[in-house]
Design a protein around this nucleic acid. Structure first.
Lengths: 362, 362
DNA sequence: CTGTTAGCGCGTTCAA
DNA sequence: TTGAACGCGCTAACAG
């Protein structure tokens, strides 16, 4: 990766490197109009491209923003990534990508790698977990983040704060009202359906999943219903599929988990995200069941790619892209005009979307 | 972004920076066992993280790989990105992301930005275009890429070479047999359907789209059919939707474009990618038409997130993730053990998937 | 095997 | 306004 350097440009233009630097990169004072042109021409003819590494070294700031996701191919993260990318472009920064599969250990590695690259800020999307087995790694992650912040780094976390993060300066949280929205969803669903509900959740300890489960239960209780049974599986399509198979068998057996309801009365299913909901729906369909006739089903996230799914999936719409933008902007260098909103919780609102998958069929 | 430096670590350990460097980062020669431990402890207690910028400056290599996509939220690119990310991790490199919306001008900017960051290699996913309006920008992009390669950079392009790229050393192409596969699809579709075909394509000049159109026509001719009409629209869902509306009107009008076929006999629709196919299907459905009864429809790519769509979409399966991996590996630094396969065309194979959306209904 | 020296390419003081 | 000198943090040649 050898390329022409600023020194070469300066020599060709017959000026000092310092002057060349001033004209080519944004400096406070502008050199003479005539000399500037000469430098620019020299740079152009040499195809000069400033070495960002060297600039970063000298200025102690890289123009890099690190993004941590579980899986970039998951439409949920892809949508957030788009928002991050957009905001980063506005700020003329570049995005460094890391995928971790959700393991806190990997996330810690990613933070360290970003710190090594001197990324100005880090956005962590994706659910954190509080599982006991992840305890140590979570602690390490928190420590790494702390150090990063203490060194002047900016961090934004989507959803939940990292467990045990001491939150010095520069630590921001874009909180998503998962619980409230799940409660709203439950209330609306309960208004149109008096049968039993079942929740398909992710592994225990996953904050996003747990919040949504808790919220849904709360909504049910607010609607005068008892708590729903919770089936736990992996936080992806196949997890939803497996749970769907179980529920299909149950529905076909004619009961709804011992409540003694008559056969064919179906079930109200809430999957904690759209992808799991789709998986569950696929399983039901594979078992010959129909939605919403034999079972009503709702998800969460309102993934764009899934909007053409039939029957249209009831869900909670989340401004994923906006969330990415907000997180990114929260980590932007202080705008100098004093509006230091700092770590004030950023407002994210969602909306319950009732669609065909939970409509009455009679 | 101030952090403890190698010098500090060295001082604390009572050794020279050079020695510290040798033990902490991979050097050829290993220092004494005792001194190594002392350095490691010092580094640990200081929370030392090597400054990759400085390392890069000194070593002239950054461990960065740049990825250029149209839109990271598009499942097609997201899948490729996952592959790139995976391979990058294997090679202990980090991914820099740039999204361009497909404009050659933006791609040129991205290449320049990657070059500035001294990325070791660049992967360009996404269709190139040869539209006249993009001529200048394409030329600039090619020039930028050339320069990048000449400076020792590695480039891999998915699908088609960049227009006008002079291809010095380090320029690789992962070619995707779009045309052949589209032809295969046409042949298989024609075997089960004797009605008319219509192609929903992207804007003229988009290589991927044009290749698939050309291949499909070729396949039709191979099957003894005349060429299909081509509807051009934007290369995304809404483009498919618009085309679908037009076709719906035509189908409902009872003709198939003047061929005089009886009403209700439908149409065989080939959309050049899955996302457009889904859009078209949504339009047909919105107009009260059913698939495959009123129209058969097929796409291209076999997007994972869309696999649960009903009726299951006939398509051509592409190993997107593998493509990303291949592209990334193609740009890896020469493996030193001599297997310099260099710019040999990398093998990518796809497969026609006939599913419910193109099945006979009677 | 270790320490010293000299850059990598650039920004930013200082004097001129 | 311009140029010369220094330092950012690290690696790679040397010297000891």
């Amino acid at each position: 990766m050898a390329a022409s350097t600023l020194t070469e440009v300066a020599r060709l233009a017959g000026v000092s490197p310092a002057t060349a630097s001033r004209v080519l990169n944004g400096s406070a004072r502008k050199p003479g109009k005539d000399i500037a042109e000469r430098v620019r021409q020299a740079a152009d003819s040499l195809g000069y491209i400033p070495n960002a590494q060297a600039q970063g070294l000298a200025k102690s700031s890289s123009g890099l923003i690190g993004l941590i996701v579980h899986d970039i191919a998951d439409p949920y993260f892809a949508a957030i990534a788009r928002g991050v990318q957009e905001a980063a472009r506005e700020q003329r920064r570049m995005v460094l990508l890391a995928t971790t599969g959700g393991a806190p250990g990997e996330e810690k590695e990613a933070v360290a790698a970003f710190a090594a690259r001197r990324a100005d800020s880090i956005v962590i999307a994706g659910s954190r977990s509080s599982r006991a087995e992840d305890g140590d790694e979570n602690a390490e992650l928190a420590a790494e983040l702390d150090r990063y912040c203490r060194n002047g780094g900016q961090v934004a976390v989507v959803g939940h704060p990292v467990v045990g993060a001491a939150a010095p300066e520069g630590y921001h949280v874009v909180s998503v009202p998962n619980q409230e929205l799940a409660a709203d969803l439950a209330v609306e669903l309960a208004a149109g359906w008096d049968g039993d509900f079942v929740i398909i959740g992710g592994p225990e300890g996953l904050f996003t999943s747990d919040d949504r489960i808790r919220g849904f239960q709360e909504g049910l209780s607010r609607a005068g219903r008892g708590p729903a049974e919770v089936l736990r599986n992996s936080f992806n399509r196949s997890g939803g599929y497996e749970a769907g198979l179980k529920l299909a068998a149950r529905i076909k057996a004619g009961g709804t988990g011992g409540s003694g309801r008559p056969a064919g009365n179906g079930l109200g299913i809430f999957a904690v995200n759209d992808v799991m909901a789709i998986g569950a729906a696929a399983a039901l369909r594979a078992e010959g069941l129909r939605i919403p006739r034999d079972a009503r089903i709702a998800g969460f996230d309102d993934i764009e790619t899934l909007r053409d799914f039939r029957p249209a999936l009831s869900t909670v719409s989340l401004p994923l892209e906006e969330i990415g933008r907000l997180a990114t902007r929260a980590t932007a260098p202080p705008t100098a005009d004093g509006d230091d909103q700092d770590s004030a919780p950023l407002p994210v609102t969602g909306r319950v979307m009732l669609r065909r998958s939970t409509e009455a069929t009679d």
